[in-house]
Simulated assay, not measured.
Amino acid sequence: MKRNDGERDNLFDNIYLSLRQDILWLRLKPGTILTEAYLADKFQSSKTPVREALMRLSFDGLVNVFPRRGYCVSEISFADIKDMHEYRWVLESTCLAKAMECATEEQIEKLDSLSYTDRLFYRDEEPRFSRTPQEEPRDSEFHIYLAEIAGNKIIHAQLIDVLEKLQRPMLCVAEENYMSRGVEEHHILAGMIRDKKADEARELLRGHINEVYEHCLRISTIAKLF
């Protein structure tokens, strides 16, 4: 039966989102080979929406394209990790400064309530390949809401994108001790925003963001994890 445009769009979206989730949650490991024929069979679709989804993932930097050979889940690059952490700091330091100026008590209370929700953990699961992507709990809700308080929609969207792309290396190095310390720092940071302690808050946020990066640097090569 011929699909209408809406059905084709939905199928493309579902394939794209499902594969993106599997890559970001490391169910599809860096270096995994993907082919249009295999994925079309898994998703019970033609190759066209699969090809479109893979090209979109290539644009996202999550898939590499090898003409006439197929596709491969991209490796995690240390250069990219460094660049993304630097960009994250630019975005979040701006959000922190804005939040210091405009955050209401109600917003600060909500921010504080999100202090203990960011618990990253490694998910060693089989690829889902669902035609209807399942909702994953979003990590870094505290940081995303801080950007929402700042009120700049472009920065908010850019921060979500950066945090999603950092999810793979963050999952690689997540350890219970420093993750627990990290969420406690969220609570302290919320209190500093309430008390308008701008310099202390900026210093804490800088160290908070740098810690994951420093953990990544202590790994000789992330590729050895897979």
Score class of each variant (00 low, 15 high):
Ala147Glu: 05
Glu36Gly: 09
Gly151Glu: 06
Leu120Arg: 11
Asp41Tyr: 03
Glu101Ser: 12
Leu62His: 02
Ala97Trp: 09
His187Trp: 11
Arg69Trp: 00
Met192Val: 08
Gln44Cys: 04
Asn210Val: 07
Leu146Pro: 13
Arg218Glu: 14
Asp80Lys: 15
Lys47Gln: 08
Leu217Met: 10
Arg51Val: 05
Asp124Tyr: 03
Val173Gln: 11
His156Leu: 12
Trp25Glu: 14
His143Leu: 15
Thr35Asp: 01
Asp22Pro: 01
Leu26Asn: 08
Val162Gln: 05
Lys98His: 12
Leu19Ile: 00
Met192His: 14
Met100Val: 11
Lys165Val: 01
Tyr87His: 13
Val65Leu: 04
Gln158Phe: 04
Asp118Cys: 05
Ala157Ile: 08
Arg119Pro: 03
Pro67Ile: 02
Val162Tyr: 05
Ile188Met: 09
Lys47Leu: 04
Glu126Val: 10
Thr32Arg: 07
Asp5Tyr: 12
Leu39Met: 02
Glu36Lys: 14
Pro127Gln: 00
Ala40Leu: 07
Leu57His: 02
His143Asp: 09
Gly70Lys: 03
Arg56Lys: 13
Cys172Trp: 02
Glu135Leu: 12
Pro133His: 02
Ala99Phe: 08
Ile15Cys: 00
Lys224His: 07
Asp13Trp: 07
Leu120Phe: 08
Asp195Gly: 00
Arg128Cys: 06
Arg206Asn: 11
Leu39Trp: 00
Met1Val: 14
Asp22Ala: 08
His208Ala: 05
Trp89Glu: 15
Ala79Asn: 12
Arg168Val: 01
Gly182Asn: 13
Arg119Asp: 02
Asp9Pro: 03
